[in-house]
Design a protein around this nucleic acid. Structure first.
Lengths: 147, 147
DNA sequence: CTCCTTTACTGGACAATGTCCATTATAGTT
DNA sequence: AACTATAATGGACATTGTCCAGTAAAGGAG
């Protein structure tokens, strides 16, 4: 059982860590696309041939909202919809060349975000941070299915 | 220097950890108040006699938006404004009794959120998680001023 | 096949959240 | 007194997110 003091320290970590990531988000990401648009695009690019519904589920977003975002990405020629042969209600989604380029750029920016996060600490401390976070990851998420 | 693989693992931790906290937020918190309202109330309750501007700065929120939230809390009788004797432009803020009650409740809920986070892992693993996160905290934030 | 229920996707309407700019009043400086 | 800066706030608006209902197809059960 965690003590109240330990719980408070974890809460403190959560607050400062999410604040820091939020700040870096604002600094690092291309302002032409909203955070959610980027998330959807990343999701589509990371798992070929997802359906809109799968995107909504994976990102825990409202189906209608997701649909609108996807349609916006389609209008911007970043994503294409294709008819499923198995289920005529479903579409599956692919990135266009431009979508792939944007994907690569967002991916780069995400790397930059981590580099910024550790920019002011020594290489040794970076290694320690990495180990701490992956330990936490393993404890919290190792017995789960997928990203 | 972190390798690309290490950066990806940290990104993966960030994604899953913030997702998890977000989910727990939704489950745990009293729906009568928005997340930002709760943040403002917690901030006012944690540091007596803040001014609206200080709240906005501490939480990195727009001054106008903060002002509106504070005024809503005042209308709900959770917060009172008092004239500053040093600066007639400023007010300072205090929780009412009801505000203090809500503060305590949100504080409880925040503790519950952490308890949920670790509900399915062994006491040993909880200790390891605690150590990992506080190590990360120290590396990232130990040479800073204040919460 | 027909009826019934469920699922995928979407649009309309709206609610909540957040941003930008201007205004008022006071402070602080010269 | 004149000028500049700051605190607080309201108006207008943009963005983000939610809810509900409708359409079309799938997947049964009989």
């Amino acid at each position: 059982m965690l003590s109240q003091k330990e719980i408070n320290e974890i809460r403190s970590f959560n607050r400062k860590y999410t604040d820091r990531l939020g700040l870096l988000n604002k600094q690092v990401f291309n302002t032409d696309f909203s955070f959610q648009e980027s998330r959807v695009l990343l999701e589509i690019g990371s798992h070929d041939e997802l359906t809109p519904m799968e995107v909504a589920n994976n990102l825990d977003m409202d189906a209608s909202y997701t649909s609108r975002i996807i349609n916006k990405l389609v209008k911007l020629n970043l994503v294409t919809k294709h008819d499923s042969k198995k289920d005529a209600r479903s579409k599956f989604l692919l990135l266009t060349k431009a979508g792939q380029n944007l994907f690569d750029q967002i991916d780069d920016d995400s790397n930059k975000q981590i580099q910024q996060l550790v920019a002011n600490i020594s290489v040794n401390q970076q290694e320690r941070l990495y180990k701490s976070l992956t330990t936490a990851y393993d404890i919290l998420f190792e017995n789960e299915s997928e990203d």
